[in-house]
């Protein structure tokens, strides 16, 4: 009897699905916009190395390049935070992010590169054609050092503070948005 007449509480309950749908839609929109500007990566997995120093390793220089190679000793007691970028000449997203590194290097931020599963001549050609943002460049043709870092695909970029502790990792190409919203604030914070 009285149960059949809609009471305010009941009406509120009827509106609940609508509210849930609206919230879901908002979340979905937020996710999509994140996907578009690169701040949200649905396949992204947090690095197991965050808050730790990288594993011990020594990588030789890329043949025919004047850059020194890269070893874990180069990543301790730094004057300023650095980026470590795993890349390859055969990797298309690496071409997309390349201009970001050229601009950052022009600002004086040291960027250390690891040439992942690449041939020396291809790496050299890539850098001579598109510019060379690296201060150091280690060659990792078998990709074993990359596995020690927990790299699961190129490009991957790590930010290390002055103590050489890994503070941030991004899997995928660094876009202008990520550079401005993540990398630069982190570089300032750890300077």
């Amino acid at each position: 009897m009285s149960d059949l007449t809609p009471r305010p509480r009941r009406r509120l309950l009827l509106a609940a699905p609508l509210g849930v749908a609206a919230l879901g839609g908002l979340g979905f929109w937020y996710m999509l916009s994140g996907l578009q500007n690169g701040s949200f990566n649905p396949r992204g997995v947090p690095s197991a190395l965050l808050g730790r120093t990288p594993p011990d390793f020594t990588l030789p220089p890329v043949e025919g390049m004047s850059h020194p190679g890269l070893s874990s000793a180069d990543l301790r007691g730094l004057a300023r935070p650095v980026l470590v970028n795993f890349w390859a000449s055969w990797c298309v997203p690496c071409i997309i992010e390349h201009p970001q590194f050229m601009a950052l290097q022009a600002e004086g931020v040291p960027i250390f590169g690891v040439s992942y599963k690449d041939r020396a001549e291809d790496a050299r050609q890539f850098l001579s054609r598109r510019g060379d943002p690296f201060t150091r460049l280690g060659a990792d043709p078998p990709g074993r050092v990359a596995i020690d870092w927990g790299v699961y695909g190129v490009p991957e970029t790590y930010l290390l503070d002055r103590q050489g502790i890994i503070r941030w990792r991004y899997a995928g190409p660094i876009t202008a948005e990520i550079m401005n919203e993540d990398v630069k604030p982190l570089l300032r914070r750890h300077a």
């Binding site: 997995v45 947090p46 690095s47 197991a48 190395l49 594993p55 596995i147 020690d148 870092w149 927990g150 699961y152």
Partner: peptide
């Protein structure tokens, strides 16, 4: 493996 890639 877990040390490098985490629990995932």
């Amino acid at each position: 493996l877990q040390n490098r890639y985490g629990d995932f």
